[in-house]
């Protein structure tokens, strides 16, 4: 971590060596970890899946191919359920829940949570509109709401990544781009896996296989992004997890990526893919991605308690001036 002394304006840094040599204030945390718990991890998983489902629903409808109707209905149901459950999770996480409506009091483009609140509300109502099309027969309304819902869905899969990145928590802020990307890929992967399950349950093998291939693609991309993100974080100075945290990370990777990729590959290699393997893979993706959100949240909280992480991250030598971010890769 050798760094060149950046010009600190007039008058410049003290005579002490410019390089940071691990000083801390009695080892006390330099920043505060968020007051969030598992509910936020669960919400990120639900939001990603809901967003991804609505995107696939829109694609299904746009293809005008009747074969996707089952998937479209499932996707819209998944979207509404996840949005509702997600919303309730968020409200219960507020420390003054009876003022949940203040989330819509103001629109601040600098705050992913502010934008996210409007995205979630919009997405929820639009998804409900699309679902109403099936349930109450308002087909025209459903079709009209489908594209905006999909657009909101794209937001849903991504804004939670930006929300974490736009903090000072070392593990989240170390590489904002990769965090944003892996959030989207995780969302699409879990959506594809969930809908693939839907197809298998509905006995629609063909569409199920297509969704499997999509899930395989998304999970592969997510693996690549996640590994790069973790490597970039460590290079930036965030300590690699040890002990229990390390075990949780490995199990998340195993279930979210390793197992499903293996299973999907098995299915792709064989001429007659077995539905059982596909279901197992989909389930593994879902559980894995949920675990990964949980791990992402916990590793962030713990990194905030380690002053060394934050101080290494906030060294002038990291070219922090250039992009205004915390020296992301």
């Amino acid at each position: 971590m050798s760094g060149h002394p950046l010009p600190y304006g007039r008058p410049n840094m003290p005579a002490a060596p410019a390089a940071y040599r691990g000083e801390t204030y009695y080892g006390r945390a330099a920043v505060k970890h968020s007051p969030w718990d598992w509910r936020i991890g669960a919400y990120m998983f639900a939001a990603g899946m809901a967003g991804g489902s609505q995107i696939l629903a829109a694609l299904g409808e746009a293809s005008k191919d009747r074969r996707w109707d089952g998937m479209v209905r499932n996707a819209r149901t998944v979207a509404v359920v996840n949005a509702t459950v997600g919303g309730l999770l968020l409200i219960s996480d507020l420390k003054t829940p009876n003022r949940w409506y203040n989330m819509l009091r103001i629109f601040r483009p600098t705050s992913p949570m502010s934008m996210g609140s409007f995205v979630l509300t919009g997405f929820g109502t639009l998804s409900a509109a699309t679902l109403a099309g099936h349930a109450l027969g308002w087909r025209r309304a459903a079709r009209a709401a489908q594209v905006p819902a999909a657009l909101a869905g794209v937001g849903m899969t991504t804004y939670t990544g930006a929300l974490l990145a736009a903090t000072s928590t070392p593990a989240w802020s170390a590489s904002p781009r990769l965090l944003g990307a892996r959030t989207a890929s995780a969302g699409m992967a879990s959506a594809a896996a969930a809908l693939a399950l839907g197809e298998r349950a509905g006995g629609r093998g063909g569409t199920g296989q297509t969704l499997d291939r999509l899930a395989l693609l998304a999970t592969g991309l997510d693996l690549a992004l996640s590994l790069t993100a973790d490597a970039s974080k460590n290079r930036a100075g965030v300590e690699a997890p040890r002990g229990g945290e390390r075990m949780r990370r490995l199990s998340a990777y195993a279930l979210a990526h390793a197992l499903p990729l293996g299973l999907y590959a098995l299915n792709a290699g064989v001429r007659r893919p077995s539905p059982g393997v596909s279901v197992a893979a989909a389930l593994s993706v879902l559980v894995g991605q949920a675990l990964m959100r949980g791990h992402l949240l916990q590793s962030g909280q713990r990194s905030a308690t380690r002053p060394g992480d934050y101080f290494r991250l906030t060294q002038p030598s990291r070219g922090v001036q250039r992009i205004g971010g915390a020296g992301d890769a």
Binding site: A162, S168, R177, G324
Partner: peptide, 28 residues
């Protein structure tokens, strides 16, 4: 217990969103 070069958190909204939307778009 002060960071030598802290940064403005909001600076990281645009890069994270851009990468996220790109990935979502790609997968779509």
């Amino acid at each position: 217990n002060l960071p030598a070069a802290p940064s403005r958190a909001a600076n990281r909204v645009r890069p994270a969103l851009a990468a996220g939307l790109a990935t979502a778009g790609l997968l779509t």
